[in-house]
Every structure is written in structure tokens, then in C-alpha cells.
Design a protein around this nucleic acid. Sequence first.
DNA 1: CGAACTAACTTTGAATACAATGTTCTCGTA
DNA 2: TACGAGAACATTGTATTCAAAGTTAGTTCG
Lengths: 240, 240
Amino acid sequence: MPKSWQDTVIDDIHAGKRVGDQYIVDMIRDAVLSQRLPPGTRLPEATLGDIFGVSRSVVRKALTRLVADHIVVQQPNQVARIASPGIEETKEIFAARRLVEGEVAALLAGQLSSAQYTELRQIIEEEHDAHQQGEEARRVKCSLAVHRYLADQSPNRVLGSMLADLILRTSIVIALYKRPGMEACYLDHDHAELLDLLGSGAPQQACDRMRQHLSDLEALLDLRPQEGRIDLAAILGGIA
Amino acid sequence: MPKSWQDTVIDDIHAGKRVGDQYIVDMIRDAVLSQRLPPGTRLPEATLGDIFGVSRSVVRKALTRLVADHIVVQQPNQVARIASPGIEETKEIFAARRLVEGEVAALLAGQLSSAQYTELRQIIEEEHDAHQQGEEARRVKCSLAVHRYLADQSPNRVLGSMLADLILRTSIVIALYKRPGMEACYLDHDHAELLDLLGSGAPQQACDRMRQHLSDLEALLDLRPQEGRIDLAAILGGIA
DNA sequence: CGAACTAACTTTGAATACAATGTTCTCGTA
DNA sequence: TACGAGAACATTGTATTCAAAGTTAGTTCG
């Protein structure tokens, strides 16, 4: 079943890169963000080693790091898998992200250089454009780019890297719990409004708006205790 | 120079434990928390392997995890060391911890079972006792136990584990930047007051008090841009 | 005496081998 | 058919090996 994502990775690989554990971590992170690697996907060490052209030593180091990031789960003597958090953990991830990203937004409010402001605005405009063109993949990519940009530019680097981790984990749970109907989650003018508040230098308002944005995002998911179809798939895949 | 901590580890070891990477991670974490492993300490893979009686494979996995936790720093082809963050990162760690531990305190306020409340009170009473007896080591141990207890009991597990990480990193920077005069940092009635607020169920007050407590702690450090004696020692040790 | 070079040593990086554990499939029996 | 035992296979855990890079110390030359 999981063949397509491997091909994608192979394509990226044979561009003659130097492959180390960092490269593998980046590739898997990226594949998770863009939902090419669904939750529960098996990640056998030997297979990854073949794909990336390195020995298991390197793969193991990469997997260990991904486990530390909560992107991959590993039980002794069993194949590593992309994490698939349960409902409770999903709510906790969103709550943590509201706390952290709200604070990052507050720290950034009024502190953006005009270059940063312009860059953010361009990303958001492209997101809007992609949405109107119906190009879902590009829209998701831009939407993620907005949040990752905030994480990267956080004046507090510690909070910034925490936020980067939480963005990744959020991608996973969105893939797991998004409602069948809507392709992905889009809240039309949220990012633009956020940008305005960031530019106008109102920390409290920026924080509140960010938290609301994330709550709205969470509300688009199907987090009812019963097993939705995706959750069921994960369970059948062997994840508790 | 670093011989004493190794002996301590050896003692713990030969009690016939099964040593895996988790065990090594725990031991090093604990040694860092109790300041047996000062910032900048070299951690050669072969040496650790000898101490714990395992091969470098296991040690390397442990070190990789500790690097992910920001407890250990590693540059390519160089020996791993206990991290020694600079002034800026120290401030960021404290700011992040105020945010996270404040929220955890708010979540816990009024939610503690009487068993939990009692357990916390006992730790705090022992801390007070140790302080009056002048038993510094025991006092530090209890003080840490208070905060770790909150991290463990956090209703939001995601925030809880973030807090656990931040507590560890705080230990490192306290070791680095504590003023020569005072042996360690103690704020007499802070923990007791915190416990009262936690018990009385006032989330906002508990959060504020916690943040104040952490700010007071930070204020006990010497974070002036010039190089204090400890910072200098770290630089001489080879850490940037 | 000090700086620069080199050789010996130390330490990490990566691949490989083998043991131990988990998983899957077949086959026999009720 | 359904179930369980057991063998064959797949996969991870750990140790060991060798190569590559870094560190240190000693020596020579200015």
C-alpha cells in the first residue's frame, strides 16, 4: 500500500545529495507536513536505508530524533511508525499550541521589520490565490509556511522551536481527524487579519486572534470519541 | 578532573541493572539535575560505554536523545558535552518556562486530589526542613521535586513534558550562572504560597504567582553580559 | 622563546555481522 | 471452517570493525 510516498522521496533523493541523518529527518518531516506520509505509516529501517542509500546506523539516528520530536513512535522490537495520536492528545497538542503560538504572536506584534511584513504578506496572498484557484496542495503549503515563518522569526528561539514541533504534530492530527467532506482546513481571512494585528503592534490582540484562529482550526476536526473512519484505519494499521 | 561523578554512576550501575539507552538517559538527566555533571563536561562515547558496560551503539542512541532535549550539545566529529547555554538563551528558557509552567499551574489550580495535595505538601515541608538544617543538597532535590511533580501531574501531558524539559534546562543554566555567594537559589515561602493557591482553586492567581516565582528565581542569577567566572570556565572548556 | 609543522593518539562516523525478538504463513486437527 | 502449533521470514538490538576527522604533544626553525 505505501508505495507512492516512497517514489516521491526517491525522486528527491537522486538529485545527488549528501545524505546524513539530518537530511533524512528533514525529508520525513517534510513528507509529514505535506501529508505524503499518513499517520501509522510503517518506517522499516532497512527500507529507509535502501531508499536513502545509507546503512541502518544513519537511519536509526534519524528515527531516534524523530521519536524525540513525537513524529514517529517506536516500541521495542517493532517497526517505527508515523505517530497517530488519540483524541485526548490531539486536544492537548492544540491547547499547547494556542499557548505557545499565542505568545509568539504577541512577541512579534509590532516587531516585524518591513521586509518580514512584506514576506509574510506575500505568502498569505499566494495562499489566498491558491485557494481561489482551487489548488489545494499549494494552499496547504502556503498556510503552513505562514505558521512556520512565525516560528522561525520568533524572538524567543526556545519558544520558536517548540512551536515548530507543535506545527508538525498538528499536521499529523489534522491528517488523522479532518472531516471527510472538506479537503483540508481553511479559514478564509484569518491569516490576513492576523497579519494586520501583527503589523499594528497590539500584542494582546494578536495573541487572542491567534488563539481564536487555532481554536477555529481545531473545531474543523472531527474529535468525537467515536471512531471516525480515519481513526479506524489507524487502529487497523496496528496503532493503539 | 571529572572523576567523582563517574564513581557515583558506577555505584548506581553495578546493582545489577539492565542497561539500555533509556537508563543512560535517565542517569545523565539525573546527574544534570543534581548538578553532578556541570555544563561543559565532556561525554566521550567510549568512556560512557565503559562506565555503563555497553557498546557505543547504545551510548550513541542515548546521546542523540539528550541532544534532542538540548541537554547535550554535539558538533560533528567532536566529543559531546553537557550544554552550556549563553545569557540570551538562558533568558529565553526562563521566559518559555514562565509561559508553560504558569499555564500548568493554572490547569492544576483547584484540580488537585487531596492525595496529590498532601504529597506536594510533604515535599515542600521536607524542603523547608532541609533548608533549616542547612542540608543544601536535600533542599535542592526537594525543590526540583516540587516542579517535577507539577510537570508529571499536568492534565495536559504535552505541556507537562515540555515543562519537564524546561526544568532540566533551567538546572543547567542555574549551575552556570548562580552567583558565587549564594550556594543555590532559595525563595523561602514561594512553594508554600504556590501550594495554597493551587489548593484554593484560583487559576489566574496560581499562574501569576508561578510566573513571579520564576522571575524571582531568574533574578537570583548573574546574567550580566560580561563573563562571570562560570561562563568563562565554560568558554575555556571549549563551548562557544 | 615562540610559532608552525608533523606524527601519534583519540574520538567519532558509518557499515556490517550476528543474535534476539516479532510477524506471517502453512499445516494439521477438531 | 476455525483454531493452534510451529517453522520460515522479517525486523530490530547490540557489538565490532574500519575509515575519517579532530586533538595533542613534540620537534624544528625563525
